[in-house]
Amino acid sequence: ADLRRRLVRGLSWMPGLAIVGQYGRAVVAPAYAPDEPGLADLVALTLQDMFADGIFRELYERWFPGDSPPACENWPGAATATLERVDVVARGPNTIAAIQTRGRLQVAMVANQPPFAYLDAAGQPAGYEVHLVRLMADRWLGERTAVDFVPVTLEEGLRLVAGGGADLLIGAVVHTREAELEVDFGLTTYVAGVGLMVRAGTPLGGIAGLEGQTVAAVAGSDGADVLWQVAQTAQVSLVILAKASLEEAIAALEAGEVVAVVGERADLLGPAYATPGVGVTADRLTRVPLAFALPPGDSAFRDLVNLTLQAMGREGLLAAVYGEWFDDDPPQLPPWPGEPAYPLRIVLAP
């Protein structure tokens, strides 16, 4: 028994042997200088492209025959990064210093994204991501109310975070390739994607349960195209009924005209909470990562966010908060071994 990387090396010396069993996990990844968002984007997007075109699998199987390559998170979008186009950041923001000076978090919030981030009946910020941010404020500053939430549109929020005008952007922000080139992101806190809304108690049982059924979709939406492709691959015959709006599609579901509504989970969850007798299944026809957007080129703050999320994951706190808002399991955070080299707190300036 030994570390896997050393055992693999031994296979080249002693043909005929094999590695059996896997009793622990340690993540291995390229390391590069901090506060270099352009280089980080170049490395990450290039690796994703290598996964997509099969080059990574080919290289992995050449060096680790019989072993399955690790999974790679796939950010949606079409943006690319090249060495010639890498932006050089002379000096990134010091987000932690800004928080130390003001004594509070400044959080931009896309406020019309229930159950992730929204204003409740009293006009107060609420939602899964709001809850997470308050817990971070409690851990960092000793007070969960030490947060100022600023309602914004997605475009406004990205500009604020990119310019250092906000510490984080929340509100079901999709970690796309395009956004990655503008800002940094924390670890994935929710896996969205195309999903299905059904009446409560409907025994759907996955895509196979749609055989011979009618499903509503908003006309021209990506959900309809994704469902059609998945159904064809699974050899499932179904009918997609186009509706002019999500409200009309849900009305058709309530009336029994269709067995399900297909659409982006982030768009379906809010109406599902507000509509008695319907819910969103755990099925994901696509997988789209949602994460906190962070100021670019500030590795120290990104580390603080990610290490705090991991600490909350180990303590079971992340799963507990997730379970208050969703019925499925939270995303699996990467298992970085070891303990943080410093306390996950922010000491205020005198």
Rank of each mutant, 00 (worst) to 15 (best):
D2Y: 10
L3H: 10
V8D: 14
W13S: 12
M14T: 15
P15N: 10
P15R: 06
Q22P: 00
Y23P: 04
Y23C: 13
R25P: 00
P34Q: 06
G38W: 09
L39Q: 08
A44S: 14
A44I: 11
A52W: 05
D53P: 09
G54C: 10
I55F: 12
I55W: 11
I55Y: 12
E58I: 03
Y60W: 14
E61R: 14
R62T: 06
R62Q: 07
D67N: 00
P70G: 03
A71V: 00
C72Y: 14
E73H: 07
A79R: 06
L83A: 15
E84D: 15
I96R: 12
I96E: 14
A97S: 08
A97R: 07
A97E: 09
A98C: 00
R104L: 11
N112D: 15
Q113I: 09
P114H: 02
A121Y: 02
A122N: 14
G123S: 12
P125R: 02
E129Q: 07
E129H: 01
V130H: 07
H131V: 04
V133I: 15
R134H: 10
L135R: 15
M136I: 05
T145R: 13
F149L: 12
V150N: 06
P151C: 04
P151F: 04
E155S: 11
G164M: 06
A166E: 03
L169E: 02
H175D: 06
T176C: 01
T176P: 04
T176L: 01
A179P: 01
A179S: 08
E180K: 10
G193Y: 00
G193E: 01
L196P: 05
L196D: 05
L196K: 11
R199A: 13
G206V: 00
A208K: 12
V215L: 13
S221A: 11
S221V: 02
V226A: 03
A231T: 08
Q235C: 07
V236R: 09
L238V: 00
I240Q: 04
L246S: 03
I250N: 10
E257Y: 05
E257P: 00
V259L: 14
V259H: 09
L269M: 09
A272S: 07
T275F: 01
P276E: 10
L285R: 01
L285Q: 01
P289T: 11
F292C: 02
A293Q: 04
P295K: 01
P296S: 07
P296M: 04
A300Y: 04
V305F: 02
V305K: 08
L307W: 12
L309H: 11
L309V: 10
L309A: 08
G313Q: 13
R314M: 03
G316L: 02
G316H: 05
A320K: 15
Y322L: 04
P331S: 09
P334R: 00
P335D: 05
P337Y: 04
G338C: 06
P340S: 06
A341I: 04
Y342C: 02
Y342G: 03
V347T: 15
L348N: 13
A349S: 13
